[in-house]
Design a protein around this nucleic acid. Structure first.
Lengths: 153, 153
DNA sequence: GCATGATATTTGCATTTGCATTTAATCGCG
DNA sequence: CGCGATTAAATGCAAATGCAAATATCATGC
């Protein structure tokens, strides 16, 4: 069915997985962005809170990978989150070049208001898709992340 | 297995589909971005060429949806593509507010140099994933796009 | 047939972004 | 030890972005 590298016209936009994924995430993120505007958050700030609600005291560089954000952009996002008391920066005890980031209770509280929207948007994305199919989909995503990731986290 | 809306800690980052998709596409797009830099292209410009290689003379607003780009950003990207002779803007004969965009032969030539990289990056993403699983994955993506899209294109 | 509102695109301007550089600290090897 | 190479994070600055407003055209109701 799939010969040598065909061109995009043969495959069709809507059969090319990266295109579909960009379209879908573009819309998901755009909706997310709107929710955020009201709360004084940007996408990088919200992503940082989301990851920090789950990952314990990562280095800033690790957080940049998790949040899919340029490190310089993340650095500035953290400045703002810190100014608002939502996160804390602490120098790593074993390496004083490095900084670990922790979410505060206030930060968790803000994330709690965000989470229902994230979850609901995900549910909308998966509407009418049976549980088994969802699980297979996520399993494929996990394989893909291992294939494509550059960092070991 | 899936009770009421649980929190992210219960689900886990790597079981939350939007997170995985953002991570994967972040890396895919970052790799793409590097290829582009050498060719004097930006992401919006390259996306426009890719879509235009397949979609016949869309309106600029439609192209913005296909390329997942803000319309003002796309407008400026088209300025540059036009200056380089890679696309042509033509006023729609039936509605002179609207503009249709067409790729030129030179534009197609540039896209031809891009396509192998896009295709190869996709192959890398799907490495060791069997054809049946890929197809199921794309089928799920297509359903998701229908669920989430805001525009009728 | 004309005023009012809607639609397609562009543009002005302030903000955000990302690259390249800087600062600071650790590592590795002679 | 000590010095050059490497790594973590922050920052200066130019470029890209996105929102809101402007421009131009079309559609509709009276």
């Amino acid at each position: 069915m799939d010969g040598a590298a065909r061109d995009l016209a043969d495959i069709g936009l809507t059969n090319f997985a990266p295109y579909l994924m960009n379209r879908i995430m573009g819309r998901y993120n755009a909706g997310f962005h709107e929710e955020l505007a009201g709360l004084g958050l940007t996408t990088p700030k919200a992503r940082a809170l989301a990851v920090l609600s789950v990952v314990e005291a990562p280095l800033i560089g690790e957080l940049a990978v998790y949040t899919v954000t340029e490190q310089s952009t993340l650095s500035r996002a953290l400045d703002q989150l810190q100014a608002d008391g939502l996160i804390v920066r602490q120098t790593d005890p074993d390496d004083s070049r490095a900084t670990r980031v922790t979410i505060t209770d206030a930060g968790r509280a803000v994330f709690q208001t965000l989470w229902p929207h994230m979850h609901e948007a995900q549910e909308r994305m998966f509407r009418d898709i049976p549980a088994a199919e969802r699980q297979a989909f996520v399993a494929t995503l996990q394989k893909m992340l291992l294939n494509i990731r550059k960092h070991e986290i």
